[in-house]
């Protein structure tokens, strides 16, 4: 079973506007360890896709921020996590059954511990 991480972009990722603390390297590391990754942001879905492609990352999903429930229904995972920088991110994540981390909390990559606790 997989773990799924959804990243907000602006204010959360280093290439957001404003830049956030989550680096492309962290995202890449999570993907290499088998996490399902993608973004749920207010940027157009087509623009999100282009932003990831420009960084040579093939994400599993892109969607508008309020489409988190749709992402949850599309992917089967042990845990669903959304990382963002706004109360709205938190609210939408929790309503969709995602765990939520603030952007600054995500910088420590706490999801890496999930692998240990789930024997990964």
């Amino acid at each position: 079973m997989a773990f799924l991480i959804s990243f907000d972009i602006d204010g959360t990722l280093e290439f957001g506007d404003p830049p956030g603390g989550i680096t492309v390297e962290m995202v890449r590391r999570a993907q290499e360890l088998g996490f399902l990754i993608g973004s749920c942001s207010d940027r157009f879905p087509s623009a999100q896709k282009a932003l990831w492609e420009a960084r040579d990352i093939r994400v599993d999903f892109v969607a508008a921020k309020h489409m988190l429930p749709d992402i949850r229904s599309r992917f089967e995972a042990v845990k669903y996590l959304h990382i963002g920088d706004r109360e709205l991110d938190q609210q939408l994540a929790e309503k969709a059954g995602f765990e939520f981390l603030w952007d600054h909390e995500g910088v420590a990559e706490p999801w890496l511990e999930w692998l240990e606790s789930h024997g990964g």
Binding site: P45, A47, A50, A64, H66
Partner: peptide
Amino acid sequence: QHRPEMITVDDYLSGRWIAKPANIY
């Protein structure tokens, strides 16, 4: 200058509601 991103009809229609019927776009 900063976000040369074209919007599509699907992008627009998928926009998050701010005060429905006004969405973020």
